[in-house]
Design a binder for these strands. Structure first.
Lengths: 174, 174
DNA sequence: CCCAATTAGTTGGCCGACCACATATTTGAT
DNA sequence: ATCAAATATGTGGTCGGCCAACTAATTGGG
């Protein structure tokens, strides 16, 4: 019966708990993603944003005034997450919300000037992190990595009710 | 005033906000990681765990009684995160905490029987998700992906105070 | 021997993110 | 026209995760 050797099963103090035996790639993926998020968080903090908010801003920069439901769908987030995030961002003066005149349920969201002012900083941070992340990889490796991540995304999308990307909505307002 | 083209700036309904132009790989990485975490979350919920707790349990399964500071370092988490997570897990009966007799500051943590009972389920979920994630990839592709993720991990590690993996502590209790 | 510096853990606060549930509005089928 | 279903949003609660500030115990000089 496997399970507990008195001598540690892991090779030698490596970062591989039992987990790694059943899913080394999953483990590495989670680790890398976490470090990536932290690194992005550092850059964003200097700009006055919290991780996650930069994606929201990018969507708003691209689309102008958008319905909240549009944001929910395009970011693939929970409605309540978006509501609360926007409430905070509004209080910080980055976005502005007003009722949609043609659908009294909906709320239209757009950036303020203060929000627009973040754009260069965020795009810089984003590409800066990309550079740092991919250091030492040639074009071929980068393309391969992108391809492989694409495969994982497809696999995981069909696994759980996806959203957040694939469906190119025909008459999208954006 | 820039910001709102009537025609969307993005190619064609694709999931690429402005972000993707400055960091396509970063974007894909974040997306994949998020879906992966959600997929893992689903599996864990059926077992009675929340995402993140499974890593804690794996460490405890591997190491027996451990100091809390050991967990903090090996998981690369904030001390307060670990404290609160362990408090909840203790209340759920998965782990047990007691003061370290040789260092009255420290706390020793170990799994309970109820915690041990989760092991098979967690390992199954973990490898099940690994399989689903890597569907359609051959051995070569998987190895390549692991290699590339390893490079990213190194890049991101030196970028921000790392922890969580690399240093093989000589006299590790584990 | 004693007091400063380090280390271990805790608490409170905040944010992203989820779920379950509640509310208003719009749409659709009868 | 009416009333049920679908849609759009908000509330409350819980968790993982971070930071900042705090307490308690151990270690190291002087």
């Amino acid at each position: 019966m496997p399970g507990n050797d008195p001598v540690c099963t892991a090779p030698a103090g490596g970062p591989l708990p039992t987990a790694a035996r059943g899913g080394p790639v999953s483990h590495a993926l989670a680790r890398v993603a976490r470090m990536h998020r932290i690194a992005m968080g550092r850059r964003l903090r200097d700009l006055g944003l919290y991780p996650g908010q930069e994606l929201m801003m990018m969507r708003l920069w691209d689309c102008g005034a958008v319905r909240q439901s549009e944001l929910i769908q395009s970011l693939g987030l929970d409605p309540s997450t978006v509501t609360k995030m926007l409430q905070r961002m509004e209080q910080c003066g980055y976005v502005q919300r007003r009722p949609d005149p043609v659908d009294r349920r909906a709320v239209l969201v757009e950036t303020t000037e203060k929000g627009q002012a973040l754009r260069l900083g965020v795009e810089g941070a984003w590409s800066d992190l990309e550079t740092a992340t991919l250091a030492g990889l040639g074009e071929a490796d980068r393309a391969e990595l992108a391809r492989l991540l694409g495969v994982l995304a497809e696999n995981l999308a069909e696994e759980a009710g996806d959203e957040g990307a694939c469906p190119p909505p025909p008459g999208a307002a954006c």
